[in-house]
């Protein structure tokens, strides 16, 4: 017979695995390509689950926050931590590995990519886009947590409505309505901001 602590770990271990698929997709999309040469998305997710099992109070407190959103938070923290450790402190080594693999060791290729990126967007275009995006980010930050969660899942985690419904444990139709209402509230906020700034 298992101890209560072992049962607790087993329960959460099983629960976390239910979110493996969307989180793996999220890790693949957000893991820096340079880091991907050293860690697979599966590795990162495995470490995230290990962190999660060490922080069960975080999952047991505040139960109204979906488990997916809590795991997502830990996943981003793990990725940020890996970037800090491997891309900043060992930036040159990691970058040299990547350049050597991509360009046969021709590190000057980096400059060509920078020039190409500059030619695609002029400074004014970039500035206008930044202003618009800043306003959008400000409005998103002002939304309720529920609204923000569904928008993040749909647009930043690239999840389908069906996947959102599964992660939030609600019906697909309810997830869809929640998404469109969040968009409507975001639109209203943006209109208020633009009235204020115009």
């Amino acid at each position: 017979m298992n101890s209560p602590e072992q049962d607790r770990l087993n329960y959460w271990g099983q629960t976390f695995l239910e979110y493996q698929k969307p989180l793996l997709k999220l890790a693949s999309r957000n893991l820096n390509p340079i880091l991907q040469r050293r860690f697979s998305p599966e590795d990162v997710l495995q470490e995230t689950f290990q962190d999660a099992l060490r922080k069960l109070d975080f999952f047991e407190n505040n139960p109204e926050c979906p488990v997916y959103m809590k795991l997502r938070k830990l996943l981003f923290q793990k990725i940020a931590d890996l970037e800090r450790r491997h891309c900043q402190t060992q930036k040159r080594d990691a970058f040299r590995d990547a350049v050597a693999a991509d360009f046969g060791g021709t590190s000057s290729s980096q400059l060509d990519w920078n020039r190409l990126a500059d030619s695609m967007t002029g400074p004014l275009t970039r500035l206008a886009r930044m202003d618009r995006n800043d306003l959008l980010q400000k409005a998103i930050a002002s939304l309720s947590e529920t609204d923000r969660q569904i928008l993040e899942m749909r647009h930043f985690d690239d999840m389908s409505n069906q996947e959102c419904a599964e992660a939030l444990k609600i019906e697909p139709k309810a997830a869809s309505i929640r998404y469109v209402r969040a968009l409507q509230r975001l639109q209203k906020l943006l209109l208020e901001y633009s009235d204020f700034t115009s």
Partner: peptide
């Protein structure tokens, strides 16, 4: 996604629940 600091930016922008 195109931003090299993508992950940290998202963590800041969408900070989510406090760990």
């Amino acid at each position: 996604n195109a931003n090299a600091a993508n992950n940290e930016a998202q963590t800041v922008l969408f900070s989510g629940p406090q760990v």
